[in-house]
């Protein structure tokens, strides 16, 4: 073996070449592996809606309870292309209700983050804060939020404040618990490494604990969105005169099953979209956590 001359760039290594990656053609099998699941999903959903359409048309179930898929899509289309006439209690317009619900959800989630992230970080960072707060966090997190709705109606009436309180309260606990867990599980050897290289206590938090916890906080927000959406619907079903939850109850009351199913489908789409956005966000801020995922 030849002796590398350290004075002009010898190395501690096995040989590596950064230009090892070349372009290559895909075989059909590889292309299928990459895009196949998307194709399957589209076919799968198409079949689902066709079967639904045929089943509903057969009249096995009264169309008052199960509309045809085409009617549902029509209701959804009308809902987005028309606005409610002024003063109308209930119309087919979904747009305004969706906007109202999403606005409340955003405000509720924002409040949940503003409270939940610092609370979780403090609980993870300080034994005393943890000891004091953890019984309340676990108690409230395990209490079904719906049980608190009458109480908030009592305090705040049938108002937007009541609805946002319920949304924030639904979303805040997953955020607190995830941020807390993130801080507590920060890799000991990363902390030791930072200390060896001179990190102060404050630097340990800023340069190790926070970046380590960030993906945990994002999964907390992801769960918070799911819970928050439940909070939106509950709050609007219980007390309100606007929003998707309200629209569901009104659609049911007026036997407008097409609209009812349209709103349900819309809730699924909204929920999946929001979760997908946080997933992409998580993948963006913490690429090392999704190496084995697609």
């Amino acid at each position: 073996m030849s002796t590398p001359d350290l004075s002009d760039g010898g190395s501690i290594s096995e040989a590596t070449d950064p230009n090892r990656i070349e372009d290559t053609e895909w075989t059909a099998g590889e292309a299928w592996e990459r895009y196949g699941s998307k194709v399957v999903t589209v076919i799968n959903l198409t079949i689902f809606f066709i079967v639904w359409e045929l089943f509903a048309r057969s009249g096995a179930i009264n169309q008052l309870f199960l509309p045809t898929a085409s009617n549902m899509f029509l209701a959804l289309w009308d809902g987005f292309t028309t606005t409610a006439p002024p003063g109308a209690v209930i119309s087919g317009s979904i747009r305004d209700h969706l906007l109202y619900s999403l606005t409340n959800l955003s405000i509720g989630l924002f409040i949940a983050c503003v409270i939940g992230i610092p609370a979780g970080l403090l609980m993870g960072g300080s034994k005393y804060v943890e000891k004091i707060l953890s019984p309340y966090v676990w108690a409230l997190a395990s209490l079904p939020r719906i049980a608190l709705v009458p109480l908030f109606i009592l305090f705040l009436g049938f108002t937007v404040k009541m609805q946002i309180t319920i949304i924030a309260l639904s979303a805040v606990f997953p955020i607190i618990i995830n941020a807390w867990a993130g801080v507590k599980t920060t890799d000991e050897s990363l902390l030791a490494a930072a200390r060896v290289f001179g990190a102060s206590r404050a630097e340990l938090y800023v340069k190790v604990v926070l970046p380590f916890t960030l993906p945990f906080i994002i999964s907390g927000i992801q769960q918070g969105i799911g819970r928050g959406l439940i909070g939106v619907v509950i709050a609007e079903i219980f007390g309100g005169s606007k929003g998707l939850g309200y629209l569901i109850t009104r659609a049911a009351d007026t036997f407008n099953s097409a609209l009812l199913y349209a709103v349900l489908l819309l809730l699924v789409i909204v929920s999946l979209t929001l979760i997908q956005i946080t997933r992409s966000l998580e993948a963006y801020v913490a690429p090392w956590r999704r190496v084995d995922k697609v």
Binding site: D187, S189, L190, A192, A193, R195, V196, F197, G198, K207, V208, P211, F212, L214, V285, A286, W288
Partner: peptide
């Protein structure tokens, strides 16, 4: 405490993944 006169290499690398 730790100081700049000493540095350490760790078995599990202890690199900041971010």
């Amino acid at each position: 405490g730790p100081g700049p006169d000493r540095a350490m290499v760790f078995q599990d690398y202890a690199l900041m993944p971010w």
